[in-house]
Design a binder for these strands. Structure first.
Lengths: 214, 214
DNA sequence: ATAGCTTTATTAACAGTGTAAAGGTAGGAG
DNA sequence: CTCCTACCTTTACACTGTTAATAAAGCTAT
């Protein structure tokens, strides 16, 4: 009486095909163009058949995101296990693993954290979206002074601050709320810290920008 | 012959109403539920009428985002002008202005930077999406040691690193590419810097976590 | 003033979306 | 062999963005 298991295996197989199809379409043409009908077409079933396996499109994508989290966790774990016992080295490798995952599986990362990539693809120079960068860069420039490669340094520090602020905002907006007070504390401390490395006399920006030399 | 101007004023007025209606719906029920028909309903015109003013829904939302950038720039500028001439103090206030804008106008911020908030609203404890946090926290814990309020400190450092990494990834995915090499450089330097403040003996985490005491 | 043209808006329609309800069909259980 | 359950399909509904055809209004020039 292994027929039950065979059927279960079969169902599991279809479920897996659905997920694979959705991911393939998402990777190929972006998440916006993923539709139940296209998935159904791809697995050669009728659209409502999918609802035997997932309650909604939302649930389907969420399951895909969940698998993404499993994969991400696996990579982070590997990074730790493949390194020696120094916690700092471990952390660096673990974050590098996180980083690598995000780009290797960028489509998964998008649904995991709701990063819309179709929004404002303003790549032309001097649009309104680039005014903030200009404003910040000007003031950062005052701290950097007239050194060599000032432009590069300013850009680097601007992106460092921006990444931090934008990341913290995104995480808050997505719903993983820290208490606002803690977020703001993290914010000001981090920005202040980054700025201090700019001010520090004799700083060697390209090596250890976020800590004074001992 | 001021009729031409009167007409232009009228058109500009309608255009503005369209934008206002879209923003109102977006604020009220989320951007996903903004539709041309609802906008049309709201301004008491037929749906295709909107296409006299905007080439597409995409263009409409992009214009809304553009106005958001103007507003953001304005706030950053004000923050600078309202402070004294110390660049560091200015930068702190400018980033605080950026932060405040993001939450005061969070719906605008969403379309400006493509932050989907409807994605994975996993607030239950111990889901797969929280495994990465646990992995990192464990290693951070090794650095923190058995001090008082270790949990809080770990959380704070985890969120600091995560914000940074996620922000940098998001910015790259959105399309404002820095050369990958520079991004990775910023990444490792920042993480390393944050970690070092943990390791530093006698560190005073709540005051100056990202720089050693002189 | 009237003819014609431009602008502005409408209605109708197309192709696509997620999803629910109803119906059929096959396979296992009694 | 009958019944029942699980699976799947067809049909349908209420939406979506967008286009084509059309009508009405207003300005311009004869």
């Amino acid at each position: 009486m292994g027929s039950k298991e065979r059927i279960n295996r079969h169902k599991e197989n279809i479920r897996c095909n659905i997920l694979r199809a959705a991911l393939a379409i998402g990777k190929g043409s972006g998440w916006n163009s993923v539709s139940m009908r296209k998935i159904a077409d791809s697995i050669e079933y009728s659209p409502p058949a999918i609802y035997e396996y997932f309650n909604s499109k939302e649930a389907l994508l969420q399951e895909l995101a969940r698998l993404g989290f499993l994969q991400l966790s696996e990579r982070i774990n590997q990074a730790r296990n493949n390194s020696d016992n120094d916690p700092k080295a471990q952390l660096l490798l673990m974050w590098a693993a996180y980083w690598d995952f995000a780009f290797a599986e960028q489509h998964l990362y998008q649904i995991m954290f709701g990063v819309e990539t179709t929004c404002c693809d303003i790549n032309e120079p001097l649009t309104d979206s680039q005014v903030p960068a200009a404003l910040f860069s000007e003031v950062i420039g005052l701290l950097v002074g007239q050194v060599e490669k000032a432009g590069e340094i300013i850009q680097k520090y601007y992106y460092a601050c921006w990444s931090f602020v934008h990341g913290l905002i995104s995480i808050n907006l997505i719903g993983r709320h820290l208490p606002q007070k803690i977020s703001e504390q993290i914010l000001t401390e981090a920005i202040s810290g980054i700025i201090d490395t700019l001010i520090a006399p004799g700083n060697n920006l390209s090596k250890e920008p976020y800590i004074e030399e001992v």
